[in-house]
Design a protein around this nucleic acid. Structure first.
Lengths: 230, 230
DNA sequence: TTTTCACAAAACATCGATAAATAAAGACTA
DNA sequence: TAGTCTTTATTTATCGATGTTTTGTGAAAA
């Protein structure tokens, strides 16, 4: 396997960072199932590196709630549950609502431009280019919150976004999801934000999340997605 | 220096955990100043261990926002600012309000008992026993939120609590702080929570935080507390 | 057949050493 | 004297190896 090519900027990145990003990607996209054992030796081989960067990366992922560590018993991919998914959804609605309103309150030209650009890039990326689209999608959602002047809150939202996307990947693509006019939902959020209509923007955003959440809860409750039960 | 004696339960804890806790304590109590360089070699000697546990612990602290890491340039104690303090205060009020209301909504006998016990222990610990009192104080505040059925939210509150306590330590003990009847404030919060009066409990709690915050902002704005400027 | 124990294999946590990178010190030039 | 280049010294990041703990396996006893 070959991961993370050297960054375009040419700067050599630390192995730890590379490993962290690769592992996070594997977990978020569901390539590593919940509950799966993360053996240091296996990962060493897979990512072609020593034990130290692996363990450091796993420690970071632990704080992201993507990996669970049990003293003297190693690391495993964090478990999932319908209960946790509902918790994430609820928190996302509460925190992003807060951040979005503040963002709109502090709105300025720079923010508008960043936002329009992020939206444009997302719409220009084909849905078939899954990982690239996901990147742009996240960038758009984070751009919405970027003017809220609260780095910690943004960080919390970023975390929750990642936790959520993991569930989305694990649940698999649903036809119902495709049927929805997600593009219009995004456009509506953008429109409301540009109009500085905090109320409307918040409603649109939360609707957007709730709709997606709807399907996922249903799918999660029927399927049992875990490496420990497999 | 001697830290973290073997736990009472006799179980040997991993070095990483011990180091993590010791370092966190040093940072939270202000014994390590913001901006201070965290050299692995120095810490190795100080904590009497190898590089791996140190680096893993520092990685964990990075995710807690207590340590900053710069690729290829090591770790340093996270900087502080009056701006960040205000952000923390604001977030704490918002998130704990949310958690407390949910906690009260789910209130049951178990929770009541935990809460009364935590409060009792806190009042029975002399203010002179600083570190023990701090432990009980945190336990009481976390107990208030413990019935909210949202582990992630609780974790966020826990983080913010720690970030906040760091500012409290760095600002030093203020006479004005002592003058306030903090015990009464705690008792009021407890009372309202026991009465299942979410509205009142929330008001009391937020008042409690805002009052403490008031002094700290003032002190922070006059003093410049950082190792990099010293 | 099930349980318990002892042993073997695997995996974890940690150490000591080394290569790569950064920062500091000194020498040279303008 | 200030600025830049080169050399030296720290410091970081990473590897490979080792002692310990946990887990898995199979034989003996119930």
């Amino acid at each position: 396997m070959q991961f993370s090519p050297p960054t375009a900027s040419g700067q050599s990145v630390s192995t730890t960072r590379r490993v962290y990003e690769d592992l996070r990607d594997l977990i978020l996209t569901g390539k590593m199932l919940p509950g799966a054992k993360l053996k240091v030796d296996t990962l060493k081989e897979m990512l072609d590196t020593g034990a130290s960067p692996i363990r450091e990366a796993l420690s970071l992922l632990t704080s992201d709630q993507l990996v669970e560590r049990i003293d003297q018993r190693g690391f495993r991919v964090a478990e999932i549950s319908a209960t946790q998914f509902r918790e994430i959804l609820k928190l996302r609605c509460a925190l992003e609502d807060m951040a979005l309103r503040e963002s709109i309150q502090n709105a300025n030209k720079d923010w508008e431009e960043t936002l329009v650009l992020a939206h444009h890039r997302m719409t220009r990326t084909a849905r078939s280019q899954v990982s690239e689209f996901e990147r742009q999608h996240k960038a758009f959602h984070m751009a919405l919150l970027s003017a809220c002047h609260s780095p910690i809150l943004q960080k919390f939202c970023d975390r929750l976004y990642d936790l959520n996307i993991r569930y989305r990947h694990l649940a698999g693509r649903s036809e119902a999801y495709q049927a929805r006019d997600v593009s219009k939902e995004h456009a509506d959020i953008l429109g409301a934000a540009m109009d500085r209509d905090a109320e409307l923007a918040s409603v649109c955003l939360i609707q957007h999340y709730r709709r997606t959440g709807q399907f996922l809860v249903e799918r999660l409750e029927e399927h049992q997605l875990s490496a420990s039960t497999a």
